[in-house]
């Protein structure tokens, strides 16, 4: 019971992370050792949210900037902030990124 109540793994997020990474495949964005390291950490992330995990930080930053770059220019900065406060932004992110196209390192 404790095992379930204290669980910190998000399997859906791990799935979305892999989808995002697959989109980056073949795109020339891994430009430095640091990029490569970040890429690898996310690739190996299982969805766990332990205090020492770096995967979640990379994942949420990547998710945030993906959404921001996709939407803020269209709906505006303030509405984007509001959008983040609703449940719609948590919608079907997995499907959303399936259809995402990466242009020169900028996700749109």
């Amino acid at each position: 019971m404790e095992h379930i109540v204290l669980d910190d793994t998000n399997i859906v997020a791990a799935d979305i992370a892999q989808t995002l990474l697959s989109k980056l495949n073949g795109v020339d964005i891994v430009k430095s050792q640091l990029h490569e390291r970040v890429y690898r950490i996310l690739q190996q992330w299982t969805g766990s949210h332990q205090v020492n995990n770096i995967g979640p930080t990379i994942y949420y930053k990547l998710l945030y900037y993906s959404l921001y770059n996709s939407m803020a220019d269209e709906i505006g900065e303030k509405d984007f902030e509001l959008f983040l406060k609703t449940h719609i932004q948590k919608g079907d992110a997995c499907q959303y990124f399936e259809t995402t196209v990466v242009y020169g390192g900028i996700i749109s």
Binding site: E74, I75, D79, L82, F83, T86, I88, G91, A93
Partner: peptide, 26 residues
């Protein structure tokens, strides 16, 4: 109270297509 005005604004500014894009299916 916070979601409906936002979605209305988004819809009227960007149209049905935009909602398809963000996979908003609720």
């Amino acid at each position: 109270f916070k979601t409906d005005p936002l979605l209305t604004r988004m819809h009227d500014k960007l149209g049905d297509e935009y909602f398809k894009d963000i996979q908003y299916s609720h």
